[in-house]
Computed example of a mutant assay.
Amino acid sequence: MAAAVGAAGLLAGCSGSTLGEFQGYPSDPNAGTPPVTADTIGTGTVRVGLLLPMSSGGGAPGLPNSPGAQPPATSVGQVFRNAAQLALSDFQGADIQILVKDTGGTSEGARTAAQDAIADGAELIIGPVFAPAVGGAGSVARSSGIPVVAFSSDSSVASRGVYLLSFLPQTDVERIVSFAGSQGRRSFAALLPEDAYGAVVEAVFRQEVGKLGARIITIERYKPNDADDLRAKAQAIAAQAGNIDTLYVPAGGSVPGFVAQVMQSGAHLSQVKMIGSGQWDSPEVQNTGLLAGAWYPGPDASGFQAFADRYQQNFGSRPPRNATLAYDATILAAGLVRSAGPSRFTDRVLTNRDGFLGIDGVFRFLPNGLNQRGLAVYEVTGTGARAVDPAPRSFGSAS
């Protein structure tokens, strides 16, 4: 059973034998740690570094986070700091102090920020956000034996001890292709951006379709931000629509609706089920009538709505979709301090196979630094979206 990291702000000790019991904690925790004069949240005895692009005006986020678009670098640092602050206010009696360190959104800035946090006694690093910064912080943390729970969705920066809490493209593809297969879909095509994100999802798409024993009829790759090329590649797929029952289009924004228009103009849309990714979790996609009936994966929506309401009450604005990452990471840190004692941030505890239950549902870290999430499947209605297959609440004993 997953440990709870939910909206109530409490993380219970993981049940079962994978975490174990630790008696008598704390006993003189953090004796002799240095004083901290930087930006802090909370007054607990266990120190956790929070590495964010507080002063950055730009930066490369790596692969697109899903669901939804990542907020701009000028705001993401403050948004994630707010979410961490909200988490500590929700978790009564949290015995952690968060040390907020500015990465500037760069690898070198993150390296310095990680060094500062560790020198100040941090036992765990949360963040950074951008892939280059995760690489910089990870190199420092690994040499010091300090684990990292980061927010980039670029799987290339994950490794043992550097865990990604983000919404990963791999999990999206696995969920939606598996669901399509369960609904009898057997002939697939894909329309992918010709970039790093497209390369990642193509590899997983091929693998997952193969697991179904299904066929890939064609894969077309288009130049991002080139409408003419996108139209030409969509038309190439439409020409083979008679052999296709499922079309995978992971890009969000205006792309799915544009592709649907092209398919409809050739009278092929009714023959082909369109499926997407967590990037479809936006009004622009959900309210497009031509996409009605299309499927996409995403976390349970109810948890985010409750979180967003509390965030707005406290900070006066609605948070971006991925602000829950900072909230869940903070609750995870506080909960493990409470439940796992001196072993709180060890690899064994962080990669507990039962996982944890957060705002966005159940998740667990893998030994290679990637994660698995329990996602729902949604159907576009043209006036929003509805869940057609709920997210699992646990990973199950056999998983």
Rank of each mutant, 00 (worst) to 15 (best):
A12Y: 10
G13L: 06
G24D: 14
I41Q: 02
T45E: 13
G58H: 11
G59Q: 06
G62H: 03
P71I: 12
P71Q: 12
T74G: 06
V76Y: 00
G77M: 02
Q85E: 15
L86M: 13
S89W: 04
G93D: 05
G93Y: 02
L99K: 05
D102G: 07
A110S: 14
D116V: 11
A119W: 07
I126G: 07
G127H: 11
P132T: 07
A133W: 04
I146C: 07
V148Q: 08
A158P: 12
Q170P: 00
D172I: 08
E174Q: 14
I176E: 00
A180P: 05
S182D: 12
R185M: 10
R186T: 14
G198N: 11
A199E: 06
V209Y: 03
G213L: 14
R215I: 04
R221Q: 13
D228L: 09
L230W: 05
R231A: 11
Q240V: 08
N243V: 01
Y248Q: 06
F258N: 01
F258L: 06
S265Q: 13
Q271S: 13
K273E: 01
M274K: 00
M274Y: 01
V285F: 02
Q286G: 01
N287S: 09
A294N: 00
G298T: 00
A308Y: 09
D309G: 12
N314Y: 13
G316H: 10
F345K: 10
F345Q: 10
V349Q: 09
R353Q: 13
D354M: 10
I359N: 11
G361K: 06
R364V: 03
L375H: 07
A376W: 08
Y378N: 00
A387P: 10
P390H: 07
S394K: 06
